[in-house]
Design a protein around this nucleic acid. Structure first.
Length: 456
DNA sequence: TGAAATGTTGGGGCG
DNA sequence: ACGCCCCAACATTTC
C-alpha cells in the first residue's frame, strides 16, 4: 500500500506523482492534510478555491472507485502517523520548492519513506543551470537554456479507474464561500486552456496588457494548485503552434510560453535562493529607507489612493481575488515607488488576497517591480499611473467597472479626475476629495523622493 | 515588462 | 528674401 500525499497537485490528468505511486503498488491512498499553519493564515479566497478544488477532486476520485482521505493538523505529525496506519511502503508527493515545504518535507523524509516526484514545474530547477552548474539569475539566458532541454511530449492520461481505499477516518471539507469567477475543477482548467489556445491566444501579444479586455488565459489559480499541469499546458501550446501557420497566432503562443517560463524562472530563484523570502535578492537594496505610513498602506489596500487605475485594480483584487498582470505591476510600482512603502508589505498583502498567490511568482514579481531582485526593473523605472492607465485602459472601461464613483467622468479625465474643473465634477456626479479621494501623493514629487531614497 | 529631461530638426509666422 | 523665434515632433540621454 502507498500514499499519494496531495499538496498542490489537485489533478488526475498528467500527474507524475500519482502515476509513480500507481506503478509502485496496487493500492494508493489519496490523502490531503489541512495544515494548521497554513489554515491560520488569513487567505480566505485562496483557501476557498483550494476547498472547492479538493471537493471536485474528491468527486473524481469517488467516481473512479477511490476516496480522498482528509486529515487536519501538522503534517510533520499527521503523515508519520498515517503511514503506519495504512501500512504504507512509501508516501509519494509532488516536490514543492517553497522554503516552508522544503523544510517540512526534509523533516518528514527523516522518519518515513517520503518519495518526492517532480511535477510542479516543467524542468526541475537543478536541470536549468549554467555550464559551471550555478543557477541562472537573468531571465533571458535562463529561458534559452530552458528551451533546449528535452521533455516528454506525452500527457499522462487521467486513470479511468483507481484502486479502492480501505476504511479510514476522514474529515469533511470545511464550509466556505465559493469563488464565483474561478470554478475550481480540472475540467474547467482544461476548458480554459483549450479555449484560450483556440482563439484569444492569437491576440495575446497585443491584448495581454490591456486591462479592459479579457486577453489573458486566466489560468493562474489552476496552475497554483495543480488543477492543470504546467507541462500539459506547454504540450498543448506546442500542438497549437504546430497546427498554425498564422504569424499573429504563433507570436501569441510564443509570448504565452514565455510567460510559462517566467513561472519556472521564479520557481528556480526561490529554490536556489530561499533567502529572497526574507530580503532583497540584490544586497545593494537591503537598506532602502522605506516610509512607515500605515494610513497610505491602508488606502492602497482599500483602493482609495485617488489614482483611478490603482484603485480599480486594488478593488478588483479585494473583490475577486484576481488582478490583471499589468495591473499588478502598476499597483506594485505605486506602493513601492510612489508611496515608498517596503515591497514586502505588498508581497504580504497579495499573498493574503490572491487566489493564485504563489510564494515564488509573487516574491519574484514584487522584487522585479521594486528593482531589488534578479533581472529586475532598474530602480529608476517608475510607472506613471496616469500614462499606464491611458495606454492600457484607453477608454477607462476598466476603471469605470471597479470605481463606480467615476463612472460618469469623461474619458479626458478618467485617469486624472482631480484635474476636472468644479463644474465638470458636478456634472459627473463626483466631488474629488469627498466622494472620491484626492491623490494620496503627487506622482512627480513622489518620483523624485524615491530616486533619492534608492540612491542612498 | 518606462518616463522625464534634454537635445535636435524643420515648418511656419512674422517683422 | 531673409533671419529670427516658436514649438511641435521626434530622437537621445538620463534617472
Amino acid at each position: 500500500m502507498n500514499i499519494w500525499w496531495i499538496r498542490r497537485d489537485l489533478r488526475l490528468r498528467d500527474n507524475p506523482t500519482l502515476a509513480t505511486a500507481l506503478e509502485a503498488g496496487e493500492t494508493v491512498v489519496p490523502v490531503f492534510i489541512f495544515d494548521d499553519t497554513l489554515l491560520e493564515k488569513p487567505a480566505e479566497k485562496r483557501q476557498a478555491f483550494l476547498f472547492a478544488g479538493l471537493s471536485s477532486l474528491a468527486d473524481e476520485l469517488t467516481r473512479r472507485g477511490s476516496r480522498l482521505i482528509i486529515r487536519r493538523g501538522n503534517p510533520r505529525l499527521e503523515i508519520p502517523r498515517l503511514a503506519p496506519e495504512v501500512n504504507a511502503a512509501a508516501v509519494f508527493a509532488e516536490e514543492d520548492h517553497s522554503p516552508y515545504a522544503v523544510r517540512r518535507d526534509t523533516e518528514i523524509g527523516g522518519s518515513i519513506n517520503l518519495r518526492l516526484v517532480h511535477g510542479v514545474g516543467i524542468h526541475h530547477p537543478n536541470l536549468v543551470t549554467k555550464a559551471d552548474g550555478k543557477p541562472y539569475t537573468v531571465f533571458t539566458p535562463f529561458s534559452k537554456a530552458w528551451k533546449t532541454l528535452p521533455f516528454s511530449r506525452s500527457i499522462i492520461p487521467a486513470p479511468a479507474s483507481l484502486p479502492a481505499v480501505p476504511a479510514l477516518n476522514s474529515r469533511e471539507i470545511p464550509e466556505y464561500t465559493p469563488v464565483n469567477n474561478f470554478p475550481a475543477s480540472e475540467k474547467e482548467a482544461l476548458r480554459r486552456l483549450m479555449e484560450f489556445l483556440s482563439g484569444p491566444v492569437g491576440e495575446y501579444r497585443d491584448n495581454r496588457n490591456r486591462m479592459d479586455l479579457d486577453g489573458t488565459s486566466s489560468l493562474s489559480p489552476y496552475f497554483r494548485f495543480g488543477l492543470l499541469s504546467a507541462r500539459s499546458a506547454l504540450i498543448e501550446a506546442y500542438h497549437a503552434l504546430e497546427n498554425s501557420t498564422e504569424r499573429s497566432i504563433n507570436a501569441g503562443i510564443e509570448t504565452w510560453i514565455n510567460e510559462l517560463i517566467w513561472r519556472e524562472f521564479y520557481q528556480s530563484i526561490l529554490y536556489h535562493f530561499p533567502g529572497v523570502q526574507q530580503h532583497a535578492f540584490n544586497p545593494a537594496f537591503r537598506a532602502i529607507p522605506w516610509r512607515n505610513a500605515p494610513e497610505d498602506l491602508l488606502a492602497w489596500q482599500a483602493g482609495m489612493t485617488g489614482y483611478p487605475v490603482v484603485d480599480a485594480a486594488m478593488r478588483q483584487l479585494a473583490s475577486t481575488g484576481w488582478m490583471h498582470n499589468r495591473a499588478r505591476m502598476i499597483t506594485a510600482s505605486f506602493l513601492v515607488k510612489d508611496l515608498l512603502i517596503n515591497w514586502q508589505e505588498g508581497e504580504r498583502w497579495f499573498m493574503r488576497t490572491l487566489i493564485d498567490g504563489d510564494p515564488a511568482a509573487n516574491n519574484g514579481g514584487w522584487q522585479w517591480t521594486a528593482g531589488t531582485g534578479t533581472d529586475a526593473a532598474p530602480y529608476f523605472r517608475i510607472f506613471n499611473p496616469i500614462l499606464q492607465g491611458a495606454k492600457f485602459d484607453p477608454l477607462g472601461a476598466y476603471v469605470r467597472s471597479w470605481v463606480p464613483e467615476l463612472s460618469a467622468v469623461p474619458d479626458k479625465w478618467i485617469h486624472a479626475p482631480w484635474e476636472m474643473p468644479a463644474d465638470e465634477q458636478r456634472k459627473a456626479g463626483v466631488l474629488i476629495g469627498s466622494s472620491y479621494p484626492a491623490p494620496t501623493v503627487d506622482h512627480a514629487s513622489a518620483r523624485v523622493r524615491t530616486l533619492a531614497a534608492y540612491k542612498k
